[in-house]
Design a protein around this nucleic acid. Structure first.
Lengths: 213, 213
DNA sequence: GATTAATTTAAACGGGTGTTTAAATTAAAT
DNA sequence: ATTTAATTTAAACACCCGTTTAAATTAATC
Protein backbone atom coordinates (compact mmCIF):
# COMPACT_ATOMS: atom_id res chain seq x y z
CA UNK A 1 0.00 0.00 0.00
CA UNK A 2 2.96 2.25 0.60
CA UNK A 3 4.03 1.73 -2.99
CA UNK A 4 0.61 2.59 -4.42
CA UNK A 5 0.32 6.05 -2.90
CA UNK A 6 3.97 6.56 -3.61
CA UNK A 7 3.54 5.90 -7.31
CA UNK A 8 0.38 7.98 -7.43
CA UNK A 9 2.12 10.86 -5.71
CA UNK A 10 5.17 10.63 -7.93
CA UNK A 11 2.92 10.85 -10.97
CA UNK A 12 0.95 13.81 -9.57
CA UNK A 13 4.12 15.65 -8.61
CA UNK A 14 5.74 15.22 -11.99
CA UNK A 15 2.53 15.91 -13.88
CA UNK A 16 1.61 19.17 -12.17
CA UNK A 17 5.05 20.63 -12.78
CA UNK A 18 5.02 19.73 -16.47
CA UNK A 19 1.38 20.70 -16.96
CA UNK A 20 2.04 24.13 -15.46
CA UNK A 21 5.15 24.66 -17.57
CA UNK A 22 4.00 23.42 -20.96
CA UNK A 23 0.25 22.95 -20.81
CA UNK A 24 -1.82 19.79 -20.71
CA UNK A 25 -1.89 18.72 -24.32
CA UNK A 26 1.80 19.52 -24.79
CA UNK A 27 2.71 17.17 -21.96
CA UNK A 28 2.74 13.48 -22.87
CA UNK A 29 2.22 10.66 -20.43
CA UNK A 30 5.59 9.29 -21.47
CA UNK A 31 7.28 12.50 -20.39
CA UNK A 32 5.43 12.47 -17.08
CA UNK A 33 6.19 8.84 -16.29
CA UNK A 34 9.85 9.17 -17.23
CA UNK A 35 10.27 12.22 -14.96
CA UNK A 36 8.36 10.40 -12.22
CA UNK A 37 10.41 7.26 -12.83
CA UNK A 38 7.36 5.04 -12.99
CA UNK A 39 5.97 2.80 -15.69
CA UNK A 40 3.92 4.35 -18.48
CA UNK A 41 0.91 2.14 -17.83
CA UNK A 42 0.70 3.12 -14.18
CA UNK A 43 -1.04 6.38 -15.10
CA UNK A 44 -3.93 4.54 -16.64
CA UNK A 45 -3.90 2.00 -13.84
CA UNK A 46 -4.11 4.60 -11.07
CA UNK A 47 -6.05 7.38 -12.76
CA UNK A 48 -7.88 5.72 -15.64
CA UNK A 49 -7.01 8.27 -18.28
CA UNK A 50 -5.01 11.39 -18.92
CA UNK A 51 -8.10 13.55 -18.52
CA UNK A 52 -8.73 12.14 -15.05
CA UNK A 53 -5.09 12.70 -14.16
CA UNK A 54 -5.51 16.36 -15.07
CA UNK A 55 -8.56 16.57 -12.85
CA UNK A 56 -6.69 14.88 -9.99
CA UNK A 57 -3.81 17.32 -10.31
CA UNK A 58 -6.16 20.29 -10.15
CA UNK A 59 -8.27 18.82 -7.34
CA UNK A 60 -5.23 18.31 -5.15
CA UNK A 61 -4.68 22.06 -5.16
CA UNK A 62 -8.29 23.16 -5.15
CA UNK A 63 -9.06 20.95 -2.16
CA UNK A 64 -6.42 22.81 -0.18
CA UNK A 65 -6.96 26.29 -1.51
CA UNK A 66 -10.73 26.61 -1.69
CA UNK A 67 -11.62 25.83 1.95
CA UNK A 68 -8.69 27.86 3.19
CA UNK A 69 -9.73 30.81 1.03
CA UNK A 70 -13.34 30.55 2.15
CA UNK A 71 -12.26 30.63 5.80
CA UNK A 72 -10.24 33.78 5.25
CA UNK A 73 -13.07 35.46 3.37
CA UNK A 74 -15.57 34.52 6.04
CA UNK A 75 -13.30 35.91 8.70
CA UNK A 76 -13.38 39.23 6.86
CA UNK A 77 -17.07 39.10 6.16
CA UNK A 78 -18.04 38.55 9.75
CA UNK A 79 -16.02 41.53 10.89
CA UNK A 80 -18.10 44.54 11.92
CA UNK A 81 -16.90 46.99 9.33
CA UNK A 82 -17.15 46.10 5.66
CA UNK A 83 -13.85 45.04 4.23
CA UNK A 84 -12.39 46.92 1.30
CA UNK A 85 -11.79 45.18 -2.00
CA UNK A 86 -8.08 45.37 -1.37
CA UNK A 87 -8.58 43.57 1.92
CA UNK A 88 -10.73 40.89 0.32
CA UNK A 89 -8.24 40.17 -2.42
CA UNK A 90 -5.40 40.35 0.08
CA UNK A 91 -7.17 37.75 2.18
CA UNK A 92 -6.38 35.30 -0.61
CA UNK A 93 -2.65 35.85 -0.28
CA UNK A 94 -2.23 33.61 2.74
CA UNK A 95 -4.13 30.65 1.23
CA UNK A 96 -2.16 31.10 -1.98
CA UNK A 97 1.22 31.25 -0.28
CA UNK A 98 0.40 28.28 1.89
CA UNK A 99 0.45 26.24 -1.31
CA UNK A 100 4.16 26.99 -1.41
CA UNK A 101 4.56 25.01 1.79
CA UNK A 102 2.62 22.07 0.39
CA UNK A 103 5.05 21.93 -2.51
CA UNK A 104 7.93 24.03 -3.75
CA UNK A 105 6.55 26.66 -6.10
CA UNK A 106 3.04 25.47 -5.31
CA UNK A 107 1.51 28.92 -5.53
CA UNK A 108 2.59 29.69 -9.05
CA UNK A 109 2.02 26.11 -10.18
CA UNK A 110 -1.57 26.32 -8.97
CA UNK A 111 -2.26 29.62 -10.69
CA UNK A 112 -0.63 28.45 -13.90
CA UNK A 113 -2.65 25.22 -13.85
CA UNK A 114 -5.77 27.30 -13.35
CA UNK A 115 -4.96 29.45 -16.34
CA UNK A 116 -4.02 26.52 -18.55
CA UNK A 117 -7.17 24.76 -17.54
CA UNK A 118 -9.46 27.66 -18.27
CA UNK A 119 -7.95 28.29 -21.67
CA UNK A 120 -7.28 24.77 -22.86
CA UNK A 121 -10.39 23.02 -21.64
CA UNK A 122 -12.94 25.32 -23.27
CA UNK A 123 -15.30 25.54 -20.34
CA UNK A 124 -14.85 22.09 -18.80
CA UNK A 125 -12.76 23.44 -15.95
CA UNK A 126 -15.18 26.28 -15.33
CA UNK A 127 -17.95 23.71 -14.98
CA UNK A 128 -15.81 21.48 -12.78
CA UNK A 129 -14.91 24.28 -10.40
CA UNK A 130 -18.36 25.79 -10.09
CA UNK A 131 -20.00 22.43 -9.45
CA UNK A 132 -17.37 21.22 -6.98
CA UNK A 133 -16.51 24.43 -5.18
CA UNK A 134 -19.58 26.52 -5.86
CA UNK A 135 -20.29 27.35 -2.21
CA UNK A 136 -16.74 28.57 -1.68
CA UNK A 137 -16.90 30.69 -4.79
CA UNK A 138 -20.24 32.14 -3.75
CA UNK A 139 -18.72 33.22 -0.44
CA UNK A 140 -16.04 35.10 -2.28
CA UNK A 141 -18.38 36.69 -4.81
CA UNK A 142 -20.76 37.78 -2.06
CA UNK A 143 -17.97 39.45 -0.15
CA UNK A 144 -16.76 41.29 -3.24
CA UNK A 145 -20.27 42.38 -4.13
CA UNK A 146 -20.86 43.71 -0.62
CA UNK A 147 -17.67 45.75 -0.85
CA UNK A 148 -18.66 47.30 -4.16
CA UNK A 149 -22.44 47.73 -3.86
CA UNK A 150 -22.46 50.34 -6.62
CA UNK A 151 -21.61 47.66 -9.23
CA UNK A 152 -24.64 45.81 -10.67
CA UNK A 153 -24.45 42.01 -10.54
CA UNK A 154 -24.11 41.54 -14.29
CA UNK A 155 -21.30 44.06 -14.45
CA UNK A 156 -19.65 42.39 -11.45
CA UNK A 157 -19.82 39.05 -13.24
CA UNK A 158 -17.76 40.43 -16.08
CA UNK A 159 -15.31 42.24 -13.84
CA UNK A 160 -14.60 39.17 -11.75
CA UNK A 161 -13.75 37.31 -14.90
CA UNK A 162 -11.54 40.19 -16.02
CA UNK A 163 -9.85 39.72 -12.67
CA UNK A 164 -9.44 36.00 -13.16
CA UNK A 165 -7.87 36.71 -16.55
CA UNK A 166 -5.50 39.24 -15.10
CA UNK A 167 -4.08 37.01 -12.39
CA UNK A 168 -4.06 33.85 -14.42
CA UNK A 169 -2.45 35.28 -17.55
CA UNK A 170 0.10 37.09 -15.43
CA UNK A 171 1.10 33.94 -13.64
CA UNK A 172 1.25 31.93 -16.84
CA UNK A 173 3.80 34.44 -18.15
CA UNK A 174 5.37 35.21 -14.79
CA UNK A 175 8.76 33.67 -15.52
CA UNK A 176 9.13 35.44 -18.85
CA UNK A 177 7.93 38.75 -17.43
CA UNK A 178 10.29 38.47 -14.50
CA UNK A 179 13.23 37.99 -16.84
CA UNK A 180 12.31 41.09 -18.79
CA UNK A 181 11.70 43.11 -15.64
CA UNK A 182 15.08 42.04 -14.30
CA UNK A 183 16.86 42.95 -17.52
CA UNK A 184 15.10 46.26 -18.14
CA UNK A 185 14.48 47.56 -14.62
CA UNK A 186 16.72 45.52 -12.34
CA UNK A 187 13.65 44.16 -10.61
CA UNK A 188 13.53 40.70 -9.07
CA UNK A 189 10.06 39.68 -7.97
CA UNK A 190 9.00 36.43 -6.42
CA UNK A 191 5.48 35.11 -6.69
CA UNK A 192 4.30 36.98 -3.62
CA UNK A 193 5.66 40.28 -4.93
CA UNK A 194 3.78 39.85 -8.19
CA UNK A 195 0.56 39.00 -6.36
CA UNK A 196 0.96 42.13 -4.23
CA UNK A 197 1.46 44.16 -7.39
CA UNK A 198 -1.62 42.83 -9.12
CA UNK A 199 -4.09 43.17 -6.26
CA UNK A 200 -4.41 46.99 -6.33
CA UNK A 201 -4.81 46.79 -10.10
CA UNK A 202 -7.66 44.31 -9.83
CA UNK A 203 -9.32 46.05 -6.90
CA UNK A 204 -9.33 49.37 -8.72
CA UNK A 205 -10.78 47.78 -11.85
CA UNK A 206 -13.53 45.94 -10.03
CA UNK A 207 -14.64 49.04 -8.14
CA UNK A 208 -14.43 51.67 -10.86
CA UNK A 209 -17.82 53.35 -11.30
CA UNK A 210 -19.87 52.14 -14.24
CA UNK A 211 -19.98 54.69 -17.00
CA UNK A 212 -23.49 55.98 -17.66
CA UNK A 213 -23.89 58.14 -20.72
CA UNK B 1 -1.67 32.80 -60.15
CA UNK B 2 -5.27 33.29 -59.16
CA UNK B 3 -5.32 29.75 -57.80
CA UNK B 4 -2.20 30.23 -55.74
CA UNK B 5 -3.40 33.17 -53.73
CA UNK B 6 -6.78 31.53 -53.53
CA UNK B 7 -5.39 28.40 -51.95
CA UNK B 8 -3.18 30.41 -49.64
CA UNK B 9 -6.13 32.52 -48.54
CA UNK B 10 -8.38 29.54 -48.06
CA UNK B 11 -5.76 28.00 -45.78
CA UNK B 12 -5.26 31.21 -43.80
CA UNK B 13 -9.01 31.74 -43.40
CA UNK B 14 -9.63 28.21 -42.17
CA UNK B 15 -6.54 28.16 -39.99
CA UNK B 16 -7.16 31.41 -38.13
CA UNK B 17 -10.68 30.36 -37.21
CA UNK B 18 -9.58 26.98 -35.90
CA UNK B 19 -6.48 28.35 -34.19
CA UNK B 20 -8.59 30.93 -32.36
CA UNK B 21 -11.18 28.37 -31.31
CA UNK B 22 -8.98 25.46 -30.21
CA UNK B 23 -5.42 26.72 -30.01
CA UNK B 24 -2.46 26.05 -32.26
CA UNK B 25 -1.29 22.66 -31.12
CA UNK B 26 -4.84 21.34 -30.87
CA UNK B 27 -5.46 22.19 -34.52
CA UNK B 28 -4.03 19.71 -37.00
CA UNK B 29 -3.09 20.53 -40.57
CA UNK B 30 -5.49 17.84 -41.68
CA UNK B 31 -8.36 19.62 -39.99
CA UNK B 32 -7.34 22.93 -41.52
CA UNK B 33 -6.98 21.59 -45.03
CA UNK B 34 -10.23 19.67 -44.89
CA UNK B 35 -12.13 22.77 -43.76
CA UNK B 36 -10.34 24.81 -46.41
CA UNK B 37 -11.01 22.10 -49.00
CA UNK B 38 -7.42 22.02 -50.18
CA UNK B 39 -4.83 19.30 -50.24
CA UNK B 40 -2.91 18.52 -47.08
CA UNK B 41 0.47 19.08 -48.69
CA UNK B 42 -0.42 22.57 -49.87
CA UNK B 43 0.25 23.97 -46.41
CA UNK B 44 3.86 22.91 -46.55
CA UNK B 45 4.09 23.95 -50.19
CA UNK B 46 2.81 27.49 -49.58
CA UNK B 47 4.00 28.13 -46.03
CA UNK B 48 6.83 25.69 -45.47
CA UNK B 49 5.71 24.45 -42.08
CA UNK B 50 2.96 24.69 -39.52
CA UNK B 51 4.98 27.13 -37.45
CA UNK B 52 5.31 29.48 -40.40
CA UNK B 53 1.60 29.18 -41.07
CA UNK B 54 0.93 30.31 -37.53
CA UNK B 55 3.20 33.29 -38.03
CA UNK B 56 1.47 34.14 -41.32
CA UNK B 57 -1.95 34.00 -39.68
CA UNK B 58 -0.84 36.37 -36.93
CA UNK B 59 1.02 38.69 -39.28
CA UNK B 60 -2.03 39.14 -41.49
CA UNK B 61 -3.83 40.69 -38.52
CA UNK B 62 -0.90 42.51 -36.95
CA UNK B 63 -0.03 44.17 -40.26
CA UNK B 64 -3.50 45.71 -40.33
CA UNK B 65 -3.96 46.43 -36.66
CA UNK B 66 -0.60 47.80 -35.60
CA UNK B 67 -0.23 50.70 -38.06
CA UNK B 68 -3.87 51.61 -37.64
CA UNK B 69 -3.54 51.61 -33.86
CA UNK B 70 -0.37 53.70 -34.00
CA UNK B 71 -2.12 56.29 -36.16
CA UNK B 72 -4.98 56.59 -33.70
CA UNK B 73 -2.63 56.86 -30.74
CA UNK B 74 -0.55 59.49 -32.48
CA UNK B 75 -3.64 61.46 -33.29
CA UNK B 76 -4.39 61.56 -29.57
CA UNK B 77 -0.85 62.27 -28.53
CA UNK B 78 -0.46 65.28 -30.80
CA UNK B 79 -3.61 66.85 -29.41
CA UNK B 80 -3.02 69.86 -27.14
CA UNK B 81 -4.47 68.45 -23.96
CA UNK B 82 -3.20 65.17 -22.60
CA UNK B 83 -5.51 62.28 -23.32
CA UNK B 84 -6.92 60.27 -20.45
CA UNK B 85 -6.19 56.58 -20.13
CA UNK B 86 -9.77 55.85 -21.06
CA UNK B 87 -9.32 57.85 -24.24
CA UNK B 88 -6.08 56.09 -25.10
CA UNK B 89 -7.54 52.63 -24.64
CA UNK B 90 -10.69 53.71 -26.45
CA UNK B 91 -8.58 54.83 -29.37
CA UNK B 92 -7.87 51.15 -29.97
CA UNK B 93 -11.54 50.33 -30.42
CA UNK B 94 -11.72 51.59 -33.99
CA UNK B 95 -8.63 49.67 -35.18
CA UNK B 96 -9.94 46.58 -33.41
CA UNK B 97 -13.43 46.80 -34.88
CA UNK B 98 -12.06 47.46 -38.35
CA UNK B 99 -10.75 43.92 -38.22
CA UNK B 100 -14.38 42.86 -38.26
CA UNK B 101 -14.71 44.37 -41.71
CA UNK B 102 -11.63 42.56 -42.97
CA UNK B 103 -13.20 39.27 -41.93
CA UNK B 104 -16.32 38.20 -40.07
CA UNK B 105 -15.50 38.04 -36.38
CA UNK B 106 -12.04 39.39 -37.13
CA UNK B 107 -11.81 41.37 -33.92
CA UNK B 108 -12.36 38.50 -31.55
CA UNK B 109 -10.34 36.12 -33.70
CA UNK B 110 -7.38 38.49 -33.53
CA UNK B 111 -7.57 38.88 -29.76
CA UNK B 112 -7.99 35.17 -29.25
CA UNK B 113 -5.02 34.42 -31.49
CA UNK B 114 -2.99 36.91 -29.50
CA UNK B 115 -3.91 35.20 -26.25
CA UNK B 116 -3.28 31.71 -27.57
CA UNK B 117 0.02 32.85 -28.98
CA UNK B 118 1.23 34.43 -25.78
CA UNK B 119 0.34 31.44 -23.68
CA UNK B 120 1.23 28.58 -26.01
CA UNK B 121 4.42 29.87 -27.52
CA UNK B 122 6.28 30.54 -24.26
CA UNK B 123 7.77 33.86 -25.28
CA UNK B 124 8.23 33.33 -29.02
CA UNK B 125 5.27 35.52 -29.87
CA UNK B 126 6.36 38.19 -27.43
CA UNK B 127 9.71 38.31 -29.17
CA UNK B 128 8.12 38.28 -32.62
CA UNK B 129 5.81 41.18 -31.83
CA UNK B 130 8.36 43.37 -30.11
CA UNK B 131 10.91 42.93 -32.88
CA UNK B 132 8.45 43.41 -35.73
CA UNK B 133 6.15 46.04 -34.28
CA UNK B 134 8.35 47.57 -31.60
CA UNK B 135 7.96 51.16 -32.80
CA UNK B 136 4.19 50.89 -32.80
CA UNK B 137 4.21 49.41 -29.33
CA UNK B 138 6.53 52.14 -28.09
CA UNK B 139 4.10 54.77 -29.32
CA UNK B 140 1.35 53.19 -27.30
CA UNK B 141 3.42 52.72 -24.16
CA UNK B 142 4.66 56.31 -24.32
CA UNK B 143 1.12 57.63 -24.58
CA UNK B 144 -0.03 55.55 -21.63
CA UNK B 145 2.97 56.59 -19.55
CA UNK B 146 2.32 60.27 -20.29
CA UNK B 147 -1.27 59.87 -19.14
CA UNK B 148 -0.25 58.25 -15.86
CA UNK B 149 2.97 60.04 -14.93
CA UNK B 150 2.61 59.03 -11.30
CA UNK B 151 3.32 55.40 -12.18
CA UNK B 152 7.03 54.45 -12.26
CA UNK B 153 8.20 52.72 -15.45
CA UNK B 154 8.80 49.36 -13.83
CA UNK B 155 5.35 49.37 -12.27
CA UNK B 156 3.87 50.43 -15.60
CA UNK B 157 5.57 47.49 -17.29
CA UNK B 158 3.76 45.10 -15.00
CA UNK B 159 0.44 46.88 -15.24
CA UNK B 160 0.47 46.88 -19.02
CA UNK B 161 0.99 43.14 -18.96
CA UNK B 162 -1.83 42.80 -16.45
CA UNK B 163 -3.87 44.69 -19.01
CA UNK B 164 -2.83 42.41 -21.82
CA UNK B 165 -3.82 39.44 -19.70
CA UNK B 166 -7.18 40.93 -18.91
CA UNK B 167 -8.22 41.58 -22.48
CA UNK B 168 -6.71 38.46 -23.93
CA UNK B 169 -8.07 36.03 -21.36
CA UNK B 170 -11.45 37.67 -21.56
CA UNK B 171 -11.61 37.28 -25.31
CA UNK B 172 -10.39 33.70 -25.19
CA UNK B 173 -13.33 32.91 -22.93
CA UNK B 174 -15.74 35.42 -24.48
CA UNK B 175 -18.10 32.88 -26.00
CA UNK B 176 -18.42 30.87 -22.80
CA UNK B 177 -18.80 34.01 -20.68
CA UNK B 178 -21.43 35.40 -23.00
CA UNK B 179 -23.47 32.23 -22.68
CA UNK B 180 -23.36 32.44 -18.89
CA UNK B 181 -24.16 36.13 -18.90
CA UNK B 182 -27.12 35.50 -21.17
CA UNK B 183 -28.43 32.68 -19.00
CA UNK B 184 -27.88 34.36 -15.64
CA UNK B 185 -28.50 38.03 -16.40
CA UNK B 186 -30.25 38.12 -19.76
CA UNK B 187 -27.31 40.00 -21.21
CA UNK B 188 -26.27 39.67 -24.84
CA UNK B 189 -22.96 41.35 -25.57
CA UNK B 190 -21.14 41.47 -28.86
CA UNK B 191 -17.40 41.90 -29.08
CA UNK B 192 -17.60 45.68 -29.02
CA UNK B 193 -19.77 45.65 -25.89
CA UNK B 194 -17.24 43.50 -24.08
CA UNK B 195 -14.38 45.73 -25.15
CA UNK B 196 -16.26 48.75 -23.86
CA UNK B 197 -16.82 46.97 -20.56
CA UNK B 198 -13.19 46.06 -20.09
CA UNK B 199 -11.63 49.41 -20.92
CA UNK B 200 -12.71 51.24 -17.72
CA UNK B 201 -11.52 48.25 -15.71
CA UNK B 202 -8.08 48.34 -17.31
CA UNK B 203 -7.77 52.11 -17.20
CA UNK B 204 -8.59 52.19 -13.49
CA UNK B 205 -6.08 49.43 -12.78
CA UNK B 206 -3.27 51.03 -14.72
CA UNK B 207 -3.73 54.41 -13.04
CA UNK B 208 -4.34 53.35 -9.44
CA UNK B 209 -1.76 55.01 -7.15
CA UNK B 210 1.14 52.79 -6.12
CA UNK B 211 0.87 51.79 -2.51
CA UNK B 212 3.74 53.12 -0.39
CA UNK B 213 3.89 51.77 3.11
C1' DG C 1 1.29 24.80 -79.93
C1' DA C 2 5.43 23.29 -77.54
C1' DT C 3 8.07 24.05 -73.51
C1' DT C 4 8.80 25.42 -69.12
C1' DA C 5 7.32 26.59 -64.56
C1' DA C 6 3.96 26.52 -60.83
C1' DT C 7 0.67 24.10 -58.40
C1' DT C 8 -2.11 20.22 -56.90
C1' DT C 9 -2.55 15.56 -55.69
C1' DA C 10 -2.32 10.82 -53.54
C1' DA C 11 0.57 8.14 -51.07
C1' DA C 12 3.87 7.07 -48.00
C1' DC C 13 7.35 8.04 -44.18
C1' DG C 14 8.95 8.20 -39.58
C1' DG C 15 7.63 9.25 -35.24
C1' DG C 16 4.75 10.32 -31.20
C1' DT C 17 0.24 9.73 -28.83
C1' DG C 18 -3.11 7.57 -25.21
C1' DT C 19 -4.58 3.18 -24.10
C1' DT C 20 -4.81 -1.93 -23.51
C1' DT C 21 -3.13 -6.50 -22.68
C1' DA C 22 -1.27 -10.29 -20.37
C1' DA C 23 2.42 -11.91 -17.89
C1' DA C 24 5.58 -11.03 -13.91
C1' DT C 25 6.14 -9.32 -9.51
C1' DT C 26 5.03 -7.73 -4.97
C1' DA C 27 1.95 -7.27 -1.00
C1' DA C 28 -2.02 -8.83 1.90
C1' DA C 29 -5.03 -12.05 3.80
C1' DT C 30 -6.27 -16.57 5.16
C1' DA D 1 2.76 -21.27 3.79
C1' DT D 2 -0.62 -20.84 0.46
C1' DT D 3 -3.93 -18.37 -1.74
C1' DT D 4 -5.71 -14.13 -3.16
C1' DA D 5 -5.41 -9.44 -4.45
C1' DA D 6 -2.88 -5.36 -5.84
C1' DT D 7 0.62 -3.44 -8.45
C1' DT D 8 4.30 -3.13 -11.82
C1' DT D 9 6.17 -4.19 -16.14
C1' DA D 10 7.29 -4.72 -21.24
C1' DA D 11 5.13 -5.01 -25.35
C1' DA D 12 1.91 -4.12 -28.59
C1' DC D 13 -2.25 -1.73 -30.55
C1' DA D 14 -4.57 1.54 -33.25
C1' DC D 15 -4.48 6.13 -34.37
C1' DC D 16 -3.04 10.88 -35.44
C1' DC D 17 0.68 13.96 -36.37
C1' DG D 18 3.79 17.13 -39.56
C1' DT D 19 6.46 16.46 -43.44
C1' DT D 20 8.25 14.62 -47.86
C1' DT D 21 8.12 12.54 -52.35
C1' DA D 22 7.21 11.94 -57.03
C1' DA D 23 3.82 11.89 -60.39
C1' DA D 24 -0.27 14.32 -62.38
C1' DT D 25 -2.29 18.47 -63.51
C1' DT D 26 -2.76 23.28 -64.49
C1' DA D 27 -0.93 27.80 -65.79
C1' DA D 28 2.43 30.82 -67.95
C1' DT D 29 5.96 31.73 -71.33
C1' DC D 30 8.23 31.56 -75.64
Amino acid sequence: MASRTDTKTRILDAAEKLFAERGFSETSLRLITSKAEVNLASVNYHFGSKKELIRAVLARYLDVFMPSAAIEINRLHHAPEHASLNEIFSALIKPLLELNKVRNGGTIIFLQLLGRGYIESQGHLRWFITTHYGEHLATFVKAVAASAPHIPPAEMFWRLHFTLGTIVFTMASADALNEIAAADYGEHNNTEAIIRKVIPYMAAGVAVPVLTN
